[in-house]
Design a protein around this nucleic acid. Structure first.
Length: 728
DNA sequence: CGAAAGGCTCTTTTT
DNA sequence: GAGCCTTTCG
């Protein structure tokens, strides 16, 4: 027995140990940020297997992301070694998919169904709208997709949804929903939501199958429980129904996915659902300084939808939170870059210790420009994910059609990609014919190519495409997956097609990358490689995470930052309208989520937390002057002063500390925030704001005696008495 | 049929 | 300011 196991529980704090040792009955673990949640979960599983004699085979641990599943398994491997091979660790979708592959036929699924992701969903909805002759401008496909997805998350199949229709819009949704489902089953496909819905239906209607799973899985563990939707909760209720050993872990304050149908009530009313549940609250934070934790707590404490807890830490008080007031987003970027530079030069941090967090992706642009200008290396998290790239989706669509020619959505995607003279008109005719006879696009294609009632040019093109498809179908029976991919590329002249575009080279590299992924499936038995490959690419959002080893600054949205931590965190755009985002203003529930988003961001920081806002920000092409974020007011002013970190560069105005905007304009006669100025009548003051107006500059000055004044530079005769050094 | 041009919208995105 | 969609013209 490796010694690490002996220390397993002794290194945990009291609450953590209690959570780890509670191995039977319903258990709710409320895990504050940085409270060692992962350690508790892995220790608990290891303890069960190691000390309680629980068979790894009878444990299921469910996560939301593949990354989380991978990490959990990795940690357990360190603790348990080979024993953990028998554990079931995976995402909701991956686990349900596996169940449906085995037992899905009783709920009407074929053995080889494919999974459509949300982009496929929207495309399918567009087609459904077309079928129903509904105008996509009037009924946004995205909105309808969200409505259908919401219904499915609440376990409403199309029949159940029909019963609840209560408005004209819902009536439309209902009609599209029906059409959409029939198109799905026509193509032998399910969407993401169906994976959960159908698994629940399977369990609800087949008690003997449910019993099989219930008997096997004696212990269930669900991570990030605050992000579960109703279907997911129902699923774990069913699975744990026999032994009732259900452990859920989460934090209501970190629920930021309600717009993806996560239901905060699942965690908030868990004790109501399970009155005998034991509740353990992990309140000790091991991540952040007292100051950062305190500021974050103040920001979230006004929220109504939460569970009371009082976080504390033994960590140092640390540095004050810094608020930087900037002129605009460029200025903001420069301050961030300059501060990162300073942290790296003088405070012993590396670039990889720094992360810049923002509410919307559009904010990253100004930052990237700033970072590039000063030669600071960075990585942008998110961007376009690998499997979302056009060229990758094209190729996957070819593979899907080869796997199942009746996959009409994928067929429609590739029928004229690369271009082969089959235009919108021809495609529309095909679609109409298929939809009229209630058959697949492939069937329609066959008929139309045989009995051409259209122009010779189009019918020739259709015939050639059909030959291409049939040729590939034939070859797919003979050759391995990687060769099949190569064959598709050759027969479609895909490389030439890509090279017509400016970025063809890099897109071709992506295609090569996909070939590398496919190479992993070369050794699988014939007929197994392709479905396995398709399942992987549909359930995985990205190729393996980029190596975290390189020393670069991280640029990331607040949403994606959940679960991460950095010594230095910058949250930019602390403005009403950006954070909280303007679109959330009317809905109190959404506003609470915005607040949680801010909280999640702040609690990522270990040592340094830096907030910034811009007086003027151009977003989506037009300029805005946003007021400071309401969350700033909630932070005790004592926590938001600098001492030391920005040292002499910072300037105190009314108790708040402003970092100095650097290199703005670069000319000596411009005024910067923090410049000391003299005015004949008002005396000494400090510049608080400065923005161009027509041909003039409006300067806001806080005078020592006369208070705050807004002055026009041309009239005010301000004299600079002391200014700060600008960035080299 | 397909390239070009104009109009519209634009939050977050675990699977 | 960009991407997507529709319309228009060759």
């Amino acid at each position: 027995m490796p010694p690490i196991r002996m220390d397993l529980l002794s290194s945990l704090n009291h609450a953590q140990r209690e959570a780890a040792q509670t191995t039977s009955g319903p258990l709710l673990i409320i895990a504050g940020p940085g409270s060692g949640k992962t350690r508790v979960i892995t220790s608990r599983v290891a303890y069960m297997v190691d000390s309680c004699g629980v068979s790894p085979r009878s444990i299921m641990a469910v996560t939301f992301t593949n990354k989380a599943a991978r990490e959990m398994r990795g940690r357990l491997e360190q603790l348990l070694g080979s024993a953990c091979a028998a554990l079931t660790v995976g995402t909701f979708h991956a686990i349900c998919c596996r169940i449906l592959r085995v037992d899905g036929e009783v709920v009407g699924l074929s053995h080889g169904f494919v999974v459509y992701d949300d982009e496929d969903q929207v495309n399918l909805i567009k087609q459904s709208l077309q079928d129903l002759k509904l105008d996509p401008k009037q009924y946004s496909p995205r909105v309808i997709q969200a409505a259908i997805s919401a219904a499915k998350s609440r376990l409403l199949c199309e029949q159940d949804h029909a019963a609840g229709v209560n408005s004209y819009f819902e009536e439309i949704v209902q009609r599209v929903y029906q059409r959409y489902q029939s198109r799905l089953s026509q193509s032998d496909a399910v969407d993401f939501d169906d994976i959960l819905l159908k698994t629940v239906h399977l369990f609800q209607t087949q008690p003997e199958i449910l019993d099989l799973y219930q008997s096997r899985y004696v212990h269930l563990l669900v991570d990030e429980f605050q992000d579960t939707n109703l279907a997911q909760f129902e699923l774990v209720k069913l699975l744990s129904g026999k032994h009732r050993n259900l452990c859920v872990v989460g934090d209501p304050d970190q629920s930021i996915y309600s717009w993806r149908c996560a239901d905060l009530r699942n965690i908030l009313s868990f004790e109501h659902e399970y009155p005998d549940a034991k509740v353990v609250i992990l309140e000790q934070n091991y991540r952040s300084t007292k100051t950062i934790l305190g500021a974050a707590t103040q920001v979230i404490s006004d929220n109504a939808l939460r569970k009371d807890k009082s976080l504390w830490t033994e960590n140092d008080i640390g540095k004050p939170v810094v608020l930087a007031e900037c002129l605009n987003e460029k200025d903001e970027a420069q301050i961030v870059v300059a501060t990162i530079d300073k942290l790296v030069q003088h405070d012993g941090l590396s670039y990889k210790d720094c992360a810049v967090l923002y509410r919307i992706n559009a904010q990253s642009r100004a930052l990237e420009e700033g970072l590039m200008r000063f030669g600071v290396p960075y990585r942008l998290v998110g961007g376009t994910r690998f499997y979302r790239r056009q060229e990758i989706r094209d190729l996957i669509a070819y593979l899907r059609v080869i796997h199942n020619p009746h996959d009409s959505l994928s067929l429609a995607r590739i029928i004229n990609t690369p271009g082969r003279g089959i235009g919108q008109g021809t495609l529309a005719k095909l679609q109409a014919s298929a939809s009229k006879r209630d058959e697949s696009l492939y069937d329609a294609l066959r008929e139309m190519a045989a009995r051409p009632d259209l122009a010779a040019r189009a019918s020739n093109a259709l015939g050639r495409f059909l030959d291409l498809l049939d040729g590939l179908l034939e070859r797919s029976k003979e050759i391995a997956l990687p060769d099949l991919v190569a064959e598709i590329l050759v027969r479609t002249s895909y490389r030439g097609y890509l090279m017509e575009h400016d970025d063809g080279e890099s897109r071709w590299e992506n295609v090569q990358e996909l070939k590398t992924v496919a190479a992993d499936y070369a050794n699988l038995a014939h007929g197994e490689a392709l479905p396995a490959f398709l399942e992987k690419v549909s359930l995985v959002s990205d190729t393996d995470e980029m190596n975290g080893a390189s020393d670069v600054v991280t640029l990331i949205t607040l949403h994606q930052a959940k679960g991460l931590e950095f010594p230095a965190v910058f949250i930019i755009g602390m403005e009403d309208g950006v954070l909280p985002y303007r679109k959330s203003f009317e809905d109190p529930a959404q506003m609470e989520e915005e607040c949680r988003l801010c909280y999640v961001g702040m609690t990522r920081a270990k040592q340094y937390l830096f907030l910034s806002r811009a007086h003027r920000r151009s977003l989506f092409g037009n300029g805005l002057a946003n007021p400071p974020s309401r969350y700033l007011n909630r932070i005790n002013p004592e926590l938001i002063t600098t001492r030391g970190l920005w040292g002499d560069d910072g300037v105190t105005v009314g108790g708040a500390v402003y970092a100095q905007p650097l290199a703005y304009g670069a000319s000596d006669d411009e005024f910067r925030i923090g410049d000391w100025v003299h005015h004949k009548k008002f005396g000494q003051g400090v510049v608080m704001d400065c923005f161009p107006d027509r041909n003039d500059l409006v300067v806001t000055v806080s005078f020592e005696d006369a208070g705050v004044k807004q002055l026009l530079l041309s009239l005010a005769h301000l004299e600079k008495t002391e200014s700060f050094n600008s960035l080299p």
